[in-house]
Write a protein that binds this DNA or RNA. Sequence first.
DNA 1: GGGCCTCGAGATCA
DNA 2: CTCGAGGCCC
Length: 678
Amino acid sequence: MSEVPGDAVERAQVLRQTLEQHNHAYYVLDAPIVSDAEYDQLIGELEAIESQYPALRTPDSPTQRVGGTAIAAFEPVRHAVPMLSLGNAFEDEQVLAFDQRVAQTLRGAGQLNGPEVAYFCELKLDGLAISLRYERGVLVQAATRGDGQTGEDVTHNVRTIGSIPRRLAAHAPQTLEVRGEVFMGQADFEALNQAQAQRGEKVFVNPRNAAAGSLRQLDPKVTATRPLRFFAYGWGQCSEPLAPTHDQVLDWLSCLGLPVNQAEHALVQGAQGLLAYYREVQARRSSLGYDIDGVVYKVNDLAAQKTLGFVAKAPRFALAHKFAAELAQTKLLGIDLQVGRTGAITPVARLAPVFVGGVTVTNATLHNEDEIARKDVRIGDTVVVRRAGDVIPEVVEPVLALRGSETKAFQMVSQCPVCASAIERPPGEAVARCTGGLFCAAQRKQSLIHAASRNALDIEGLGDKLIEQLVDKARVQSLADIYGLTAQELAGYERMGSKSAQNLANAIAAKREPPLERFIYALGIRHVGQSTARDLARSFKTIEQLMAANQEQLLAVPDVGPVVASSILRFFEQSHNREVIEGLLAAGVKPQAPELGRGQSDFAGLTFVLTGTLPNWTREQAAQAIMAAGGKVSGSVSKKTSYVVAGEDAGSKLARAQSLGVAVIDEAGLQRLLGAPE
DNA sequence: GGGCCTCGAGATCA
DNA sequence: CTCGAGGCCC
């Protein structure tokens, strides 16, 4: 390092600063200060200095934008604060309902000053969500959304995106996670496709997929040639206190050098303000120059956002108002029947390929036989197909005017198309089910596919084609058998060479100690989804205790009612289900009890009661913190109470908690649960 | 559900 | 070299 002359160090620093300014002017402000040639000359000079003195080549240097070396794989990244999804609305009524719910909650909490709620409005860009992590102002990591908790490291590619600063302004906080959307403009997309076609390479079907594909390149040099853009719309972890409102925080992000789509933002009052914004954006949608699939509304006041809290995976303070789905007409070629994990028989429409909503649709669900009858859809009909952004394509109705004489009405079968068991449809229910249970190969396969899936045990490399083979060859009957598979025997299956087999064997071994909630969810108990599985894991701590639970204990779990409870009891009553679990435990699978402390701040499904005087917090502050983490605060202790937080001079509530056997913690205990500050 | 990228199996060719 | 499978994005 000492060999680098001081003037080179200085010159490199000046060049870097100048280049970052030009980048900002060009990409963020869309107002270049210098010509491309001048820019190239500057970057060339910096490049020369850096190659002469490699010690000066820092990862945040503008020269590194063109792309470093290819990586071997996308590493998982755990988000410090989860990346949530948003609730959706398609109709005005849903927006009115959202506003009413918000207003009511805030009025109840005394946080509504004035007659209407103040909302922040923005465009919902059609790209992919990204989280950028800055430490001491330097971009250190970029990750995709993933399942919201854990995404993939795409730092190498994100560094090549011009509008994403590699270094923030000097007053940047110690740590800052910025959330935003990576996307591609329509003109850039067209130009890219033209260039791709000229080179004889594949053209992309729409800007979103082009952007997504560009970010999933192993070699950042490819990404560097793709015209990707970025707008910040939110944040995760931040080491400094934030301004009190959403718009102010975004202004601050903008001052730090991040691109924020301020020209399209609006602050409005109440539901009518939201709808007016929606209409105004809708009218200008085609002239924006980039794809959007709707608009997003957020309660502007951050304290109010905290009060509103979260449901499952989405904040209650925000709503995505999506544009109406696109429609198209095509021919219904046939109706296939699919047998699901629970035996549900779903009719699926096979369609003549048709381009709608940015993709080519060939399949669409028809839900159930009543829906087919209600819509009077017949095989051979010309039908209207609907598809909106991320919504699964749907057959809306037949075009009766175009109905020929060759149409055929759909007839539900009476036997399972896979195992020939009787099909039952309980009165009052819409779905017909195969009664074969795990005797039915389709149900066995589907339950295994479910168990291996990303939200359940997340066994990479165990896809549906392989499961199909394993079940057909009778090698695998139940989940427990999966853990007995060796690399050696796996290598004997179709499309499984020694490499794939070893990878899968490793993936299976790596999931031998799954979190209990994933284990429970993987079992595929009817009515037990991810969030119920989590509640059950928290309440019972071990699979043995869950299996031994009676109706009363199950009903004491938050959000578990009679239907869910009896479904769980019925599941564990069946000996083959118990055998599967025993087999799993015998195979060395050890579900891990949930850890509530240690930095985890997800209280969904937990109810707290505060009593007595806490040493450092007012009751109000403690309640705020609990609700911000997704928990509920209640006034009285019952069996459903998860924790009683007791301070000094706690009275009858503490006594009642003790008599009911409810866990009692003090303020320090609560802070541990909330995840003590890092 | 559809589109994208990557990995690796398996075919093909030299 | 091609292409199917799997994983990930919306």
